[in-house]
Design a protein around this nucleic acid. Structure first.
Lengths: 342, 342
DNA sequence: TACATAATTGAAAGCGCTTTGGATGCCACT
DNA sequence: AGTGGCATCCAAAGCGCTTTCAATTATGTA
């Protein structure tokens, strides 16, 4: 069943039927009713490819999924996608996911844009001086970036959380509890959020005249395995840190195992604050010692970005170009006063 | 730059240029070279929407992502997607992801098929007597199902792992170690794999004249939280089970926490075997007591399904319609001889 | 040399939709 | 009666590609 058949069935022109379906005003209400009724009866669905060819609009947003043989799938990606999806489903939008080698993201993004398969683009895992920004700007297609790109002019549409503020606040709390020896378990240093979180820690420490030793920083993929390794390193330092800032609850998972294996007690010998993306899989309140966290829902960010993207495509009102979400600092049992010096 | 412009530039007809690009044999090699060269210079990219409209092929496979406000995102989904992606990227395929309410999957699948946006479909999270099978069969579109549907005639293309065999083998191992009191922490009972795994356990026990008590079975979402709760229940039973079969390492995470909190030792007081989907996030060898597992890579399954789907669309040789992968039983420290009766 | 055959190329007809640029009829108002 | 305005509707021209059918040229055969 296509438009032509439907219009013949109704004794109307394709034009009128098309207009009736797309809500144009110049069609008689009675006629519109008749068309809608016929659609219901016949189960007619417009062919998207034809619609797209005619309008240029696709009803979909494109994103690049970093993947490669051996590339670890990322829990955070799935969670964010769920948020995007939750909103997309309300507007009958879908995603076109272009899998791409992580080294090939710029090209993949361009391919996606040129393919004509998408109306808007989305990019995440931003890096410092990210080359994708220039590429996105050069396209005449709406886009929103999740995160920011350190070092780049902030003149692009983004949604980010206040990573620096989060880790600044977390560090301050630990300072107030009397800690003086800090360590940071961070994500890969080329990623924007890692840079900012590190800056947050450093500036809070600087206010007390403290510095963050290079030995007390780890940059690694955010897996529990890396968390374990990093923490083992920290614990072997001559001046063992007592306060740990941790970029993910996933890292914390491994870190805490290391703490336990060393016979130390979390929240007493070692205080730890992790950033919590609100992954359903890893609830900080369910850890055997519940985790103090800086919290911001990754999924909520997905919902919001989908809103902005879809809204822009549908020309539904202006959206703020830049949004910076504050995080919450939630205190649980993994933080406590610094142990007394012996 | 479109086909017309390109062909004018070359002084050829659109027909010839199109043929040159799509590898048709009836075009002179010299001409083809000339065309390919021009494409490189101009950066011409065929408009996918037009291509699709003309051919009916879209170069994409469709899948439904179960999602809804409050619906937990699933680590397993992301991992599987990564596998699909890894293969898709090799063939310049992409995905169209249709987010849908879990109760609405049949309709979502149909919408996806009718939309004309995809060449093939994929369905997962199969249930017993799954209604999607009839729907998929009625479509004239290639599809592959991940998992099977218990109770339905197995005449549809699927890739599944031998869930029953896996849990049968695991149970047998525990029996050989002298265990007699078993419990099963399973996924939601409506899911196919849960049904089969339960059957595997029951049939292995039956061979020794043992039965699985209803109190010793839990069916729940596979989160660590549910794992914790289920294990707490088990531990309070008058005849505490000593052997636990567990449908996911995620469940095991919570279960083990409960074991520790009860002051019991894993691998001594309690033996546990979990099914391992090879999630990068949760490696069983990294658990504080490394886990004995039945193993089958979810990601590998994704790769294989993408292969079959894409291969079918491209008409690249026949593929087996039904595949059943054996799992590996890998023994680590979480299993040990049954504790002596006191 | 004449004719069948193979190798190349093109013109044009769609694919199913949207949208431009009229038609048409009806009404109110000069 | 004549005019302009309005509400409806339609014919037809694309959107950019593939593919059928036909034309043209080159090659081989008798």
């Amino acid at each position: 069943m296509n438009l032509k058949q439907l219009s013949e069935l109704l004794g109307l022109s394709q034009t009128t039927v098309s207009r009736a379906l797309n809500g144009y005003p110049e069609v008689n209400e009675a006629t519109r009713e008749r068309v809608l009724q016929a659609v219901k009866e016949t189960g007619y669905r417009p062919n998207k490819a034809a619609q797209r060819l005619a309008t240029g609009k696709a009803g979909s947003i494109g994103l690049v999924m970093p993947t490669a043989p051996g590339h670890q799938s990322d829990v955070h990606f799935g969670e964010f996608l769920a948020g995007l999806g939750e909103e997309a489903v309300r507007h009958d939008f879908h995603f076109v996911i272009m899998p791409a080698d992580p080294d090939d993201e710029v090209a993949a993004l361009r391919r996606l844009a040129i393919s004509g398969n998408v109306d808007a683009l989305f990019a995440a895992y931003m890096r410092g001086h990210d080359p994708r920004l220039a590429m996105l700007k050069s396209l005449s297609m709406p886009y929103v970036v999740h995160g920011r790109s350190f070092g780049a002019e902030p003149d692009y549409p983004y949604l980010d959380i206040d990573n620096e503020g989060a880790f600044y606040d977390a560090t301050r709390l630990l300072l107030q509890l009397g800690h003086t020896r800090f360590a940071l378990m961070n994500g890969p240093i080329h990623l924007d959020f890692a840079i900012r979180r590190k800056n947050g820690v450093i500036s809070a420490l600087a206010e007390r005249g403290l510095a963050l030793d290079e030995d007390c920083i780890s940059h690694a993929l955010m897996t529990d395995e890396q968390g374990l390794l990093a923490m083992e390193q920290f614990l072997q330092l001559p001046e063992r840190p007592t306060a740990i800032l941790c970029s993910s609850t996933v890292l914390a998972l491994g870190a805490i195992r290391a703490v336990n294996q060393a016979g130390l007690r979390l929240g007493e010998d070692i205080s730890l604050i992790a950033h919590d993306d609100v992954l359903p899989l890893l609830k900080p309140e369910n850890f055997s010692v519940p985790l103090t966290t800086t919290r911001s829902s990754l999924r909520a960010a997905g919902v919001r970005i989908a809103q902005r993207l879809i809204g822009t495509v549908k020309q539904a009102g202006p959206f703020p170009d830049q949004e910076l979400w504050k995080t919450e600092l939630i205190v649980r049992a993994s933080t406590g006063p610094a142990p007394q010096q012996l």
